[in-house]
Design a protein around this nucleic acid. Structure first.
Lengths: 199, 199
DNA sequence: TAAAACAAAACGAACGTTCATTCTGTTTGG
DNA sequence: CCAAACAGAATGAACGTTCGTTTTGTTTTA
């Protein structure tokens, strides 16, 4: 048994909590929540069953902790983008670039956030699309319509056009259908997406 | 126990096979594959455990039968579209309209096809994005680029732009984030999507 | 300061339940 | 009469969770 890998995503947490969550993220994305046993996680993370139940309450608690931690991380990224850029165009471009980079650098994180069916194993959490991070992403587009930066149209439709292609590409990249790093395709995507939205 | 509902999707199958698959589709989409037991399916479908194992081999076999049956249905729809329209624009519009209608009329079918993480419970089936139906959808766009109907660009990116927004809308509709019937938003979506692709 | 008392954290064997699958017996169709 | 189809009780492995015990750390007392 080799020592568990430590992800930079959980650096601020106590060592064994971080080990547990890193391992859980890895196993959940590789085998799925229901095919991963708590004993699996304990063994690979080199922590005891008791430790897990002491700190996370139950199996769902592990997933819940992961979910909240990663969504909060997303929110920090969006905070930064919101502070750095003013226009809807710049902001949504920055969002997509950030998501593309994250997909390449931390595919498991991206997979858990965007691709997993949380409702199956976190029935009480909001659907990922309703989570604050995704609502804020959409609101950038809404503001772009109000400020006439984007052509007048249904705001939800506009948001789907802005992010739909990108999210689709992320899914295909995570499924290894796309073999090119996403950042390489970003400009091509962006030019042709925004072409339909300019007033 | 009320009689099981019969979906038109399995009409050509023997009665109890159809009942089994209809019930499985319903329970899989409502509770998820792993939270649905074979006994659940047998009880709701009013068939015996023996019947299920005689006809479907194992639990995965039920999901596999569903998957293949629904993908084949998709292929028939695409056949029809391919025969009825010639241009990439007409064809992909027809695809999206068909998918939107299906989402409203048979949300569970759509959910199972597009939204479920098949790799978790069908590890040997190809990812849904690699399945023939989705490959064919993309090839319509590829042909549109070759015939100069679509501006010159990376074909994969073009396909993501054409279908990405639509698929995103389907996901949000299935998650009840969008409360308007999708066909009502189709034209708005289409005009603004295609605006970025016209040469 | 040393030892005793207490508290919190960690451990992991054992338990009870769930559930996919098997098996044995029965019915049906040719 | 044979084979295929079907029924449903029985099986046993897997797994989430519990809980009595041990270890570690902190506070109190003499």
């Amino acid at each position: 048994m080799t020592a568990p890998v430590q992800s930079v995503f959980f650096n601020e947490l106590p060592l064994r909590n971080a080990q547990t969550l890193t391992t859980a993220l890895h196993l959940f994305t590789a085998k799925g929540f229901f095919k991963t046993s708590v004993h699996d996680i304990a063994e690979h993370a080199q922590v005891s069953i008791g430790f897990i139940y002491h700190h996370f309450k139950d199996k769902e608690g592990i997933a819940r902790a992961l979910y909240n931690h990663l969504l909060e991380h997303m929110n920090v990224l969006i905070d930064h983008i919101e502070a750095s850029f003013q226009t809807a165009k710049e902001r949504s471009y920055a969002i997509i670039r950030t998501l593309f980079d994250l997909t390449e650098k931390e595919p498991e994180v991206m997979q858990f956030i965007i691709h997993a069916r949380h409702k199956e194993f976190l029935p009480n959490e909001k659907s990922i699309c309703s989570a604050s991070a995704f609502v804020r992403m959409r609101s950038f587009v809404f503001q772009g319509i109000e400020s006439k930066e984007i052509r007048e149209m249904d705001p939800l439709v506009a948001a789907m056009i802005v992010y739909g292609g990108a999210i689709r590409m992320i899914c295909l990249r995570l499924d290894n259908v796309i073999e090119v790093p996403l950042p390489d395709m970003l400009d091509d995507l962006w030019v042709n997406t925004w072409g339909g939205l300019d007033p």
